[in-house]
Amino acid sequence: MNIDFQERRIPIIKIRDYLIVSIQVDMHDKMAVQLQSQILHEIERTGAKGVLIDISVLEMVDSFIGRMLSGMASMASIMDAAVVIVGMQPAVAITLVELGLEMPGVNTALNMERGIELLEKMINDSL
């Protein structure tokens, strides 16, 4: 993973009714907060019903990023959008549990495919 010193924005892609966010860089705190706002803004702008956050490249999730992700899920659900986090690495999962950050209420899926299945199920259930 490269050290990204510029204020690069993390791309958010819309596919059908979903937003797909692929986090590819080691984020600093400000960037994480920005991403949160960005995603909520996009939900409002596009009317998306679901957000898939891909963290398969993230080698580390500390307490701040962890809280950002669970905060993201709560905020999005208030805006009537489901959030699924996919691709967490085993080392990251272990460390999060050891940190005491178990992120209850956050939906996760093993990979993109399952993530979309889950999003579809969640959206259907809420209709």
């Binding site: 996919v86 967490m88 085993p90 999962a93 272990i94 999060l96 549990v97 050891e98 178990e102 992120m103 996760t108 899926a109 093993l110 990979n111 399952r114 993530g115």
Partner: peptide, 12 residues
């Protein structure tokens, strides 16, 4: 317990 919780975080 940690194993079960971590597995859940992975989506399993």
């Amino acid at each position: 317990l940690k194993t079960v919780t971590a597995a859940r975080l992975l989506g399993a």
